[in-house]
């Protein structure tokens, strides 16, 4: 230890596996955690009790659950719910991306419009929004696009806004866009400004910089909350009763129960389908997250030589190094 060379102990001590004293494995009595076991047993007992009790309660109507869970009307309604989720999410994400870019725009008017949109759509309940879109065609049966106070222009027929399915998609998508805008904005801001600068310095255009450099990196931040939004949207579709649209999963389950007077089993049936979809979505989210974390927290592919890869090769490999690094 007490050599004259100050660098001696630091460099000498570490890489000498041969001379190191044999390291004995520690043999000690493990610390016990009795309360963990107690809690675990109590929870398991409560759970088992609940299951046994529930299976015997007639109010659950398990025979109806079994009867309706694969009912054609229910599975068709599940498909409607899935379509509502996918369509409104796709539109919501695209619109959210546009709003996020607008919010980051240097143009103050563009920025304010995006802000105003978020303010309105995040500041009112989605249920209220859906009721409003349901009444939309009463306010605007058609829209005239053209020069004001003249006949020049075109009249847009808004008849499609009487189709409850389309209203549902529009209503859910417009609401979702406001939330997606914030998620996308956070993602875009999470990318180091040096990335944009490097791309610009290479002569890449704004569009190329966004699509090739910034957005792929922002995805890592955007995907997890977006996955949550998809799951949340799947459940929010049950609010389309406000429009009213009743062909979705919850709507049909309610309609059936209104005839059969078995509301509880049909709630369970609907919940099972919702759970099935959210479970599938969670698996998908896992793989998407993995895909977009490329280059982050990765091990070297040649992990046989972990330390060697860093320092040893460059000095030997540099062909044009005429001599050592010239530091005075």
């Amino acid at each position: 230890m007490s050599q004259g060379n100050p660098a001696g102990p630091a460099t000498g001590a570490v890489p000498s596996p041969a001379g190191a004293p044999p390291s004995e494995p520690i043999k000690a009595i493990k610390l016990r955690h009795p309360w963990r076991i107690v809690f675990a047993v109590v929870l398991i007992l409560l759970f088992v009790w609940f299951i046994v009790d529930a299976s015997q309660r007639s109010a659950y109507g398990w025979q109806y659950v079994g009867k309706y869970v694969f009912d054609k009307r229910i599975s068709a309604a599940a498909l409607v719910t899935l379509q509502l989720t996918i369509y409104s999410m796709v539109i919501g994400v695209i619109l959210g991306l546009v709003l996020a870019v607008m919010r980051l725009s240097p143009n103050p008017v563009v920025k304010s419009v995006a802000w105003l949109y978020l303010w309105v759509f995040r500041g009112t309940p989605v249920y209220v929004q859906l009721v409003f879109w349901g009444l939309f065609s009463l306010i605007y049966p058609h829209i005239f696009l053209g020069v004001p106070w003249t006949q020049m222009g075109v009249t847009l027929d808004l008849g499609f806004m009487q189709n409850a399915f389309i209203i549902a998609i529009v209503g859910l998508a417009l609401n979702e866009a406001a939330y997606m805008a914030e998620i996308v904005r956070a993602g875009l801001l999470s990318v180091d400004s040096g990335q944009e600068e490097a791309a610009t310095a290479l002569g890449m255009s704004w569009w190329q910089t966004m699509t090739r450099i910034v957005i792929p990196q922002a995805m890592r931040v955007i995907i997890p909350p977006t996955g949550n939004e998809v799951i949340s949207m799947l459940k929010t579709t049950s609010l389309v009763a406000a429009i009213p649209l009743t062909t979705d999963l919850y709507g049909v389950a309610r309609d059936i129960s209104a005839v059969t007077y078995t509301p509880i089993p049909l709630l369970i049936v609907a919940s099972l389908w919702y759970l099935l979809f959210t479970s599938i979505l969670m698996v998908g989210q896992y793989f998407l997250e993995k895909r977009f974390s490329r280059g982050v927290n990765m091990r070297r592919p040649d992990n046989k030589e972990p330390a060697l890869a860093t320092g040893a090769l460059p000095a030997a490999g540099a062909p044009d190094g005429n001599n050592l690094g010239g530091k005075g």
Binding site: G311, A318, P319, L324, G326
Partner: peptide, 16 residues
């Protein structure tokens, strides 16, 4: 300890 390898590349570039 990594400065030298970068400067070497830059020197080669200047020499070219």
């Amino acid at each position: 300890e990594l400065v030298g390898e970068v400067l070497d590349v830059m020197k080669g570039l200047a020499a070219s």
